[in-house]
């Protein structure tokens, strides 16, 4: 038998049918419908009107900036904090199995559950965070109700929930480093800082890269947590593109909503793809 018959294309058929019909085709037609006034009953062509609205309405264009801030902040905080935690958890402490499980568990709780729990914890008058702060003599504030802090409060919770997976990836990366390097460095008299800088960090490069990409893309798409904690408010201080897509859909502006979707594609194409290329290059060089 030939390769052709053994590894028949028929094996691809079930996957391709589902994936192309329900994922690829909608993406392809989204580019068309983003240029229309659209209800499911009919459409009329309106050119780039939807995109113009997106960039002129403050409620809409602020979401673009928020999406960037959200994605970059969550991603960089996760990289730095998770790396420190991973270093700590790979050192010779005794309780690391327990600590690892504890750090990992939030990852299994749904975003909605996490969101509403922290809504209670961040409650301005009764929440435990502000009570702890008061106990320490600091002034708490209405974290989620204040335009200047709301986005950062949600970012904080996102980091809390998403940290675990980054930690686990870093632990895997650190553990895969051949101990011979570390021994050799120690014999040559390298201190822990030098070992970290010249051995651990460079050899963890692939892990660092995947955490950066993973959390950045996750951040750009983020919806569940923001929706359950603030619903985009106060005002539109925490609106991101994904929540605008939902709001415009709920308001019946299907074309505008789809334009938001297309904007998300453009953002990912502009940021994520070049970043991936850049990181891969840095990894090889």
């Amino acid at each position: 038998m030939k390769k052709r018959t053994v590894y028949s294309y028929w094996f691809l058929a079930p996957m391709l049918v589902i994936y192309v019909t329900l994922f690829i085709i909608p993406i392809a037609i989204s580019f068309f419908f983003s240029l229309t006034n659209w209800t499911f009953e009919g459409w009329s062509f309106c050119g780039i009107e939807n995109f113009r609205t997106f960039f002129t309405e403050p409620a809409l264009y602020s979401s673009i900036g928020n999406t960037f801030i959200y994605a970059f902040l969550t991603s960089s905080l996760k990289v730095v904090l998770a790396f420190l935690i991973a270093l700590f958890l790979t050192s010779a402490i005794k309780t690391k199995t327990f600590l690892r499980s504890a750090v990992f568990f939030p990852n299994l709780v749904s975003m909605i559950a996490v969101g509403l729990t922290f809504k209670a914890i961040l409650n301005p008058t009764k929440g435990i965070l502000n009570q702890c702060l008061a106990w320490l003599g600091m002034e708490g504030r209405d974290w989620l109700g204040d335009v200047s802090t709301a986005l950062f409060a949600v970012v904080g919770v996102d980091v809390w929930k998403g940290l675990s997976i980054a930690v686990v990836i870093f632990i895997a990366g650190i553990k895969s480093i051949d101990t011979a390097y570390l021994e050799a460095a120690r014999i040559d008299g390298a201190g822990s800082w030098q070992i970290l800088k010249y051995i651990t960090l460079p050899l963890c490069r692939p892990a660092v890269n995947s955490v950066i990409l993973l959390s950045l893309i996750g951040g750009l798409k983020s919806f569940d947590l923001i929706w359950s904690m603030t619903g985009g408010g106060p005002g539109y201080a925490t609106d991101v593109i994904a929540s605008v897509i939902y709001k415009q859909y709920a308001a019946g502006y299907y074309g505008l909503s789809t334009a938001g979707n297309v904007l998300m594609y453009l953002m990912i194409a502009i940021i994520a793809f070049p970043l991936q290329k850049f990181l891969l290059k840095a990894e090889e060089g």
Partner: peptide, 16 residues
């Protein structure tokens, strides 16, 4: 597909 998010409304349309 690992990077690209779902096109929501067109998906609803196709599902309909």
């Amino acid at each position: 597909g690992l990077m690209i998010p779902v096109a929501i409304l067109p998906t609803i349309w196709v599902m309909q």
